[in-house]
Design a protein around this nucleic acid. Structure first.
Lengths: 212, 212
DNA sequence: CTATTTCTCAGGGAAAACCCTGAGTTTTTT
DNA sequence: AAAAAACTCAGGGTTTTCCCTGAGAAATAG
């Protein structure tokens, strides 16, 4: 008997999973939580074998919650649930200890297979996501997924530029010299291939560079 | 007996709705479609009274599908389903004929109420979304309230600014003096309430000021 | 511990953007 | 035809951004 818990703020998804698994005698749903807080609270009482965890939670970032939970309960297997198949996202959450990644268009069969895989210490990814990750690591990708890596400071400066702040204001906000802000701005323009700050903002919005 | 169909590429959501409504004798789910294409195909055979339509479909933009369906079947009531509560998004889909908007964290009671409301030619919005829209229209928001009217030239200049062009370049492209371009830029900043060109671009993207 | 990356800062100059005022011309609306 | 709105341009000044070089300190990765 596998004990499964679900954390998702979408009732429909919760219902969907429950309905899918209701006639599976090997599965028992031991908990349904609609927020990170409730999950933490409930797991302090009793831990399931597997937690299906929605990434887009209202209160906390799903990745942080994942990290936190695994720190508390190293035996717990977490399968990330998401609507998006962004590979960078997948990589991030897997790096933070999740054992699997499922899109919400999954099937009962896939769910069951995922449970088995992660409980025998494997890692379960949906085939198409696996393919994508593979392509990415092989460089077989088209062009668009060239998501440049920005450093912490660069992200902060970029965010401030997007807020229509001037170099002077950014410097004061970050407690650094205006010259340093300029350096970051120039590095950003160079890294992102923009011609000026306007291009920076466009790229930041398009590629969602500031999310997380 | 209300005939309800669902279009959503997430099996879990589909299952969730079905499971929620399975014991409602007044509701009959007449179709479940995982893509826009399948929906169009199926509705050409038989139309439901209400269609629960996920906005984020793989093949077509949900808003376009909504418009298309209502062109074909004016009697059809469409309730948009989404994970996001972006008010601009809500406004857009309602303008395109949808009768309701529900987040995926809805409940059975709300679903049933939504069905009733839209079938009696009303418009159903979740209370919190309604509140948000209200606040927005009351000017409780920063700059999103008014849709500023831009002149032909202003749109051209704005578009060029968004292309990362300098005043000099824009002047050459439009065969006008750089001074004139500056004037337009200043008028834009003033009209749109931006602090600089970066703000201009952000607003242009957010509010789709350059579409037509 | 070492190598690499990131973060920090500066000088100095060119270019672009920002901001005001004022004003004639053309186009559109009434 | 008159009024309003949009388009045009300029003078003249301030502020900000852009761009280069160079370089030490701190944090991170191997």
């Amino acid at each position: 008997m596998i004990k499964v818990a679900i954390t998702d703020d979408h009732l429909l998804v919760m219902q969907g999973i429950e309905s899918m698994l209701q006639f599976e005698s090997s599965i028992k749903i031991t908990g349904k939580y609609s927020s990170a807080e409730k999950t933490l609270e409930a797991l302090s009482e009793e831990q399931p074998d597997v937690l299906l965890l929605d990434i887009n939670l209202p209160d906390i970032n799903g990745i942080d919650l994942c990290k936190q939970l695994l720190g508390l309960y190293p035996e717990l297997k977490i399968i990330a649930l998401s609507s998006h198949d962004d590979t960078n996202f997948v990589k991030r959450i897997l790096k933070n200890g999740a054992s699997g990644y499922l899109l919400k268009n999954t099937s009962k069969e896939e769910l069951l297979e995922a449970f088995e895989t992660v409980l025998s210490d494997g890692q379960y990814l949906q085939p198409n996501i696996q393919q994508k990750l593979l392509n990415q690591s092989l460089g077989t990708q088209k062009r668009n997924t060239l998501k440049p890596k920005l450093t912490r400071r660069e992200k902060e400066v970029l965010a401030a530029i997007c807020e229509e702040m001037t170099t002077q204001e950014i410097a004061e906000q970050l407690f650094i010299s205006p010259k340093t802000v300029e350096t970051h701005r120039m590095n950003l323009i160079s890294k992102l291939g923009a011609r000026n700050s306007v291009g920076l903002v466009k790229i930041a919005i398009e590629q969602e560079l500031l999310k997380d």
